[in-house]
Amino acid sequence: MTDRAILDEVNNLVREVFQRDDVTLSLESTAADVDGWDSFRHIEIMLAIELRFAIRFTSSELDEMQTIRDLVDAISRRT
């Protein structure tokens, strides 16, 4: 998958998790850019990504993710 396609999928998922159509993340976005993206939601989003992409992140990847680019890179390494 291209980074673009991964980002689109991530956006779809984040919209689904937050039940909002007005969320659009760029590679530079961070969790702080989205209202309600707290630590509880963070786990939900990461698990949703694991589930839908059929991949598993490592604990350290989860700890080190700062931006959506980190996330897209982590997905890209596995798909």
Partner: peptide, 12 residues
């Protein structure tokens, strides 16, 4: 429904 959709349905 997977857990994301289950949670979404629950909230709705």
């Amino acid at each position: 429904l997977d857990f994301v959709r289950t949670a979404a349905l629950d909230r709705a």
